[in-house]
């Protein structure tokens, strides 16, 4: 098993519920952290919203399922859904194998970019995780 430090990358922001968010042009891409996928185990299904749906920060935008558990996904930055990752429908394991890139979940048109700034940095997130352990 990898240690916490290896699971967390620097170039994204983190929410307390283990989602990450990354500004890419004028959209924010969202997924779950390597730590979260490691805790969930083998992911068998990701339920994502429809393009055009809108969410406030902190609302549930989908679920992620392992064989015997369902976890809710909370949107770290509110806004309109611009895209969902089509690859996850056939290959949910991408969330396990490449959570920060191939395993992304949604693109959001952010309502307020300050919400992104309010998320945790790599260091802050790692500190939180170490506290959790």
């Amino acid at each position: 098993m990898k240690g916490i430090d290896q699971l967390i990358i620097p170039d994204v922001r983190y929410a307390p519920d283990h989602e990450w968010a990354r500004l890419e042009g004028d959209r924010v891409r969202v997924g779950i952290s390597d730590y979260a996928q490691d805790q969930l185990g083998d992911i068998v299904y990701v339920e994502l919203p429809r393009v055009g749906d809108t969410f406030e920060r902190g609302e549930v935008f989908g679920t992620v399922e392992s064989v015997k558990a369902v976890s809710e996904l909370y949107i770290p930055v509110g806004g309109e859904i611009l895209a969902v990752n089509p690859a996850l429908e056939g290959s949910p394991e991408l969330v396990n194998t490449d959570p920060y890139h191939e395993g992304w979940m949604i693109d959001v048109k952010p309502g307020d970019l300050k919400e992104l700034d309010a998320l945790m940095s790599q260091n802050a997130y790692v500190r939180m995780l170490k506290g959790l352990d």
Partner: peptide, 9 residues
């Protein structure tokens, strides 16, 4: 596909 069911969800 048991995650649809009551004992999990």
């Amino acid at each position: 596909l048991a995650t649809r069911e009551q004992h999990i969800r």
